[in-house]
Amino acid sequence: MSKLSEKIAAFGERHPTLYKSIALSENVLKKTVFKCQGCGQCVLSHNAFTCCMRCPKQIRNGPCGGTRPDGHCEVYPERLCIWWLIHKRAAKLGRVKKLSKFHIPADRRLENTSAWLNMFAGRILPFELGKKSRDVNLTKKDPPSIK
């Protein structure tokens, strides 16, 4: 991200009340709309706006081998396989190509932090509105010092 966005993130992280209100509004939106699991490193825009952390195995790189023929999860047969849903929605939105992007292991320190500010700070992949994946080289950065 740009220098300006990094400054915005740093400002937010310096002010606990501001940080908490940003994190709260993000939570309210994402938890109600996307059933967000709070990993703090959002990949919604890569995965057809469906949260992959809802998978029992929390796989960030596509479905395990146990998806049932009707698209249900092997662990919880009453639920849909989240990656089956992601693929279906991606096909509808023309975003299947984005699913071939490799996602690096999650940074567990970012759990329950604000993904928006993490994105501004350049810790995580940027939001992608386009249908093509961009190559972004992330440099390793420390997690925000407040929670």
């Binding site: 479905p63 146990g66 279906k88 299947v96 699913l99």
Partner: peptide, 8 residues
């Protein structure tokens, strides 16, 4: 090769 979705 036998699980759904095939494309995935």
């Amino acid at each position: 090769p036998f699980a759904e979705p095939f494309e995935m």
